[in-house]
Design a protein around this nucleic acid. Structure first.
Lengths: 218, 218
DNA sequence: AAATAAATTTAGACAAATCTAAAAATATTT
DNA sequence: AAATATTTTTAGATTTGTCTAAATTTATTT
């Protein structure tokens, strides 16, 4: 079964929305896709005939097992291309997303298999998000946001939620990158900000808003 | 000015057809694109409004200066991706074309600039075809078909016209690759076949039909 | 449980790229 | 130069993904 780029974008969007909530609505999906609810309804009917979603009118929808597999294969492509763009072509993480949005629709499976091997079968993309393997298996790691790291504990930065240029700029300023080890010196209860220490750099204070977007492993 | 993938495919096709003849017809282009003449007419009107072709109904058409530049940029992308697929991912030349047909439509110019540098600014793709530089400049080399190499002269294989799997198989069998140096021992006037010698391999005879598809530099 | 509000779906329309069938222009033959 | 053949274009229809506006269903208030 083949899918158009548009279908693939819907499948991916449904997958991502399903991750963070237990039911996805037509309105929510239309907002995510920057289309109107009526367009979503049309696409749901199409994806139902292709057995990608379970869907009954007015009753909601969700990805089928096949839909889930398809979503994971698209995400795999997206993140492998992001890794390529970052590690081989030297792009910053805030630049890779839009290019990967196009590259993820290139159809050849053999291409992805070889790209994966060429890159050394990476498990995480430049934002720290896990890359599904060829079976769709995702390596899950236990992560906590920087706000949840206990005082005096050392943690390793593993991914970031907000991947905007502005966030990248901030993290560069703080000398924080994926894999950076940091110690949480103290937490300020007044505003939720945290003081961190990264080896040779002086300790700095990070606002709660930023800290919430930084994931760590302990 | 942006173009759809379909428009880009038409532009590329017109460019290639214009190379080998001095006027391209609606029928010819429709055959090349696997569409009907009526569809070509529609597209020509569209490309005319975008100032990609000069076109007057019933009077023929040709690429404008802008159309030519656009064609060269698409061909540049195509051939750089082919080079990537071959040199980095290890694909054979008969496998790279269809993937490059998809990859050539990825829009980012910065991506292509970086890919070009990553690959070491190659001048020729895996079939020996020249890769236009970022200005659209093509390095032209003087080539003759194997049938035109003088007897007792040594030549270097520089490109192949027919790039089918069958041709690849034959060339592998003959130990011929791009860059292979060979000596033309003799020409058989009866059928136009030629006897060639490649360093350590025994001399072999190649039919005229095959020899016509092999280009060499002298 | 009515009334109202919100979410969702249907109906009908549009743009892009294609098609078929028919008409128009050009080219070739007699 | 007529007649015929070929090429090209127009006209009208189809598919995909989208839209607006109206209708329907479900959810929330009063």
């Amino acid at each position: 079964m083949t899918h158009t780029s548009t279908e693939e974008n819907y499948i991916k969007a449904i997958y991502h929305l399903q991750l963070s909530r237990d039911s996805v609505s037509t309105n929510l999906l239309s907002a995510e896709m920057n289309t109107k609810p009526a367009s979503v309804t049309d696409m749901l009917k199409k994806l139902r005939t292709k057995r990608i979603v379970h869907y009954q009118r007015y009753k909601g929808f969700s990805l089928t097992e096949a839909g889930n597999r398809k979503a994971l294969s698209i995400i795999r492509k997206h993140r492998l291309w992001e890794y390529f763009l970052s590690s081989k072509l030297g792009f910053e993480w805030d630049e890779v997303h839009s290019m990967a949005e196009e590259l993820e629709h290139i159809s050849s499976d053999e291409l992805i298999t070889r790209l994966d091997n060429f890159l050394g079968n990476p498990a995480f993309d430049p934002h720290g998000d896990p890359i599904p393997d060829h079976r769709g298996k995702i390596r899950v790691i236990k992560q906590v946001s920087l706000t949840e790291v206990p005082v005096k504990k050392t943690a390793t930065v593993s991914s970031v939620k907000n991947q905007s240029p502005e966030m990248l700029e901030l993290l560069n300023h703080f000398h924080i990158a994926l894999g950076t080890k940091l110690k949480l010196n103290r937490r300020f209860e007044f505003d939720g900000s945290v003081e961190i220490k990264i080896d040779k750099y002086p300790a700095t204070i990070i606002s709660e808003q930023v800290a919430l977007n930084i994931n760590c492993t302990l």
